[in-house]
Design a binder for these strands. Structure first.
Length: 401
DNA sequence: AATCCACAGGAAGTGCTGGGCG
DNA sequence: CGCCCAGCACTTCCTGTGGATT
């Protein structure tokens, strides 16, 4: 658009005024100090320490909401342990969201032992077998971290875990310890009782960070990531306060800080201000809702479009019936088979649950009992979310005009 | 007090999809 | 490979209901 492509690239070639090292704010960076997690670090270290003496550590189960430092602590302790252990202890970290099948998890573990496993073609039990023999050949303690373990269980059940918790019976010279990480407490209900008790030999709980604690975390990262004095003093407290409201999510706090700084940089400002943070917050929120809208099924989009158009026409007190008629009209124009009003009624509830619209049941006396609906999202994010496959949006407005 | 509107929302059934299993 | 089954989106049919109007 305006400016040139050269200018865009140029900006990254010249030294940044704001950032010293932007990467330090990215979610997967593990710093050298983890403020307010010393207790968890010590606990985990105590549990894993026996590995240094050649004894099998207990299995550990770690819970905590998103952004409470579970992954960071696990990686941190592992790193330290590895430094001490040299090659006497084997480590493997697997993210079960990316590797959500039993095959891939075990293949990943085997790979970390240097055993190549084709990404497909073998039976799962063959992969298990190869992993066991390659581990036993090494004659070492192996510590395995399964991050986001709930994804694995939800997708593939708990037989891998069953296998991994009992694999020591098949090993003669090696031992395996498991560290399971999750933010979903309820998922243990789906676990086999034996797996559950074995995995839960030790349990660590990560409480949400308070606003104060988040501030410390941000300050520490900011010192690494930013040039001196580029943050206005109220920036960090604001990021911390916003994130503290969202379950003390450190990832969100860091993301806010990063986005705010990006905005400042883009503007060519020399300082990051509280206002940049507020813009960043809006952007993050918008991105979430835009994403939700973008991934909705067709009829949800059509219903949303109906509400959107009605509001744009200035309609007041929009009811289910009014929406349904508009929806029928839109469907007809686009040549799409409409669903029934009963279904649309449910769709309206689902949109309400998603926080995109606001629907509330009211009785209009003689004029029936219905729902009154209004948008509860900015018009902009709705337009943006619908844009993609509702190229029709523009076309429609022309038709309905 | 009775009526009646414009739906809400429950129950049961249909048709489709995709994964697991022999 | 076909078969079965679960889960889902949706339909059909239905009974229920708060309160303005009669």
């Amino acid at each position: 658009m305006e400016g040139g492509i050269d200018e865009i690239f140029e900006r990254f070639l010249v030294e940044s005024k704001i950032f010293r090292d932007r990467d330090k704010l990215l979610p997967d960076y593990v710093p050298n100090e983890l403020p307010h997690r010393t207790q968890q670090i010590m606990q985990l270290a105590k549990i894993l320490a026996p590995a240094l003496g050649g004894y099998k550590p207990s299995n550990v189960f770690i819970y905590g909401l998103t952004g409470t430092g579970k992954t960071a602590v696990a990686k941190y302790v592992l790193r330290k342990l590895q430094e001490k252990a040299q090659d006497r202890v084997l480590f493997s970290y697997v993210n079960c969201r990316q590797n959500s099948t039993s095959y891939r998890v075990v293949a990943e573990l085997a790979r970390s032992l240097g055993t190549r496993i084709p990404f497909t073609g073998l039976s799962t039990s063959e992969v298990y077998r190869r992993f066991v023999s390659s581990l036993d050949r090494r004659g070492r303690i192996m510590v395995v971290v399964l991050d986001e373990i709930d994804h694995l269980v939800k997708k593939s059940g708990d037989d891998v875990l069953y296998f991994l918790t009992r694999v020591n019976e098949q090993l003669s010279s090696s031992k395996l310890s498991l560290i399971g990480i999750t933010n979903d407490l309820k998922f243990t209900e789906f676990l086999d009782a034996r797996v559950k008790s074995s995995l839960g030999e030790e349990e660590l709980v990560f409480p949400p960070y308070t606003a104060r604690e988040l501030e410390d975390i941000l300050r520490q990262r900011a010192a690494e990531a930013f040039n001196d004095g580029v943050l206005e003093p109220d920036v960090i407290p604001l990021c911390a306060a916003i994130a503290a409201k969202q379950n003390g999510d450190a990832r969100l706090a860091l993301d806010l800080l990063l986005k705010a700084a990006d905005i400042a940089e883009r503007e060519g400002a020399s300082k990051v201000t509280a206002d940049h943070v507020r813009q960043a917050q809006k952007e993050i929120e918008k991105n979430v809702t835009v994403d939700v809208i973008r991934t909705m099924p067709l009829h949800h989009k059509l219903v949303l479009l109906a509400v959107y158009l009605l509001e744009k026409e200035g309609a007041r007190n929009i009811t289910t019936g009014v929406i349904y008629n508009k929806y029928l009209e839109i469907s007809r124009l686009l040549g799409i088979d409409p669903v029934t009003q009963r279904r649309v009624s449910d769709v309206i509830n689902e949109l309400d649950m998603a926080g995109i619209i606001n629907a509330r049941v009211v009785s209009l006396g003689r004029y029936g009992r219905t729902k009154i609906i209004k948008l509860s999202t900015s018009v902009r994010s709705i337009e943006e979310g619908l844009q993609e496959d509702l190229f029709m949006l523009g076309a429609l407005e022309m038709v309905t005009r």
